[in-house]
Write a protein that binds this DNA or RNA. Structure first.
Lengths: 142, 142
DNA sequence: TTATCCTGTAACAATTGTAGTTACATGTCG
DNA sequence: CGACATGTAACTACAATTGTTACAGGATAA
């Protein structure tokens, strides 16, 4: 199991939009950097657009950031591309047997723990901004 | 996407082994509490056995905890059932284009972040013992 | 206006992982 | 030996992901 690479691709896309902000970033161009199919890029860009992170118009080549990279967190991106449902990171078997002590209490015992484990992970993502990624990328080009 | 319910089922199994420690916990019995097929239970019990968390012998009915429930963390169980690979929670698109500034630096920029986000989640699991789950279950039966 | 280039999206295939199931070999023990 | 349990292979059904083709529709320059 792993979280869909849509997330890492989305970060890649947004980084390009900022770093190459003076250029025209078409889905073809971005696809060649990500090394995938342009349709994959358009799909993800569509999700980012619905989430208000990018601006893109049918017929007009290229996409642009809709916000300052300092105002976009990795959690925003993660939520935008629907890779994990809210409180849904951990799958839980449903309908355990209510006639068993463990069966009727297991969900109540583990769901809150799973929720807080997921939250801990998401808090790390919330603490990182797109700006931080950009800086890291640029620092390696010096 | 979510983490396989093998994890929650494994916690369920181990809880039964402790709470019903005086009984004989066959895969059939456990399956009726989890509400699944006995083979699913035996598969997971086999993984827990390889990880040294339970003792089970071919031909001998029932399984037993191999350790004190105070010495088993949720992280131990999570690792035992192989639901997430080490540093593999987040999928990352491979072979981005090295001829692009973003392409050649994106992995270096995001992998450490993904690793620390995953670690944060796993640290929450590491802080919870099977014993805590058992106590929670029993507290609800008072 | 028309040609061209782009985005949006439906539709489909290939791949992978999960969960359930049947079947059966093998081990234990009365 | 017989009854019963575990271990495991093999198969199905299902869902999500990723890549792909095809095409409708918008924007713009000549």
């Amino acid at each position: 199991m792993n979280i869909s690479s849509r997330f890492s691709v989305a970060i890649h896309i947004l980084s390009i939009l900022e770093i190459n902000k003076t250029g025209t970033n078409t889905s073809d161009f971005i696809a060649s950097s990500v090394n995938t199919n342009p349709v994959v890029i358009r799909r993800i860009t569509g999700m980012l657009s619905k989430a208000g992170l990018v601006e893109v118009k049918p017929g007009v080549p290229g996409a642009k950031l809709a916000k300052d990279p300092g105002d976009i967190t990795l959690l925003d991106i993660y939520n935008a591309v629907n890779v994990v449902e809210e409180n849904g990171l951990f799958g839980v078997h449903d309908s355990p047997n209510p006639d068993c002590t463990v069966g009727r209490n297991i969900q109540g015992a583990i769901v809150p723990l799973f929720t807080s484990a997921q939250k801990a992970m998401e808090n790390v993502l919330a603490a990182v901004k797109l700006q931080d990624i950009i800086q890291d990328i640029e620092a390696h080009e010096m």
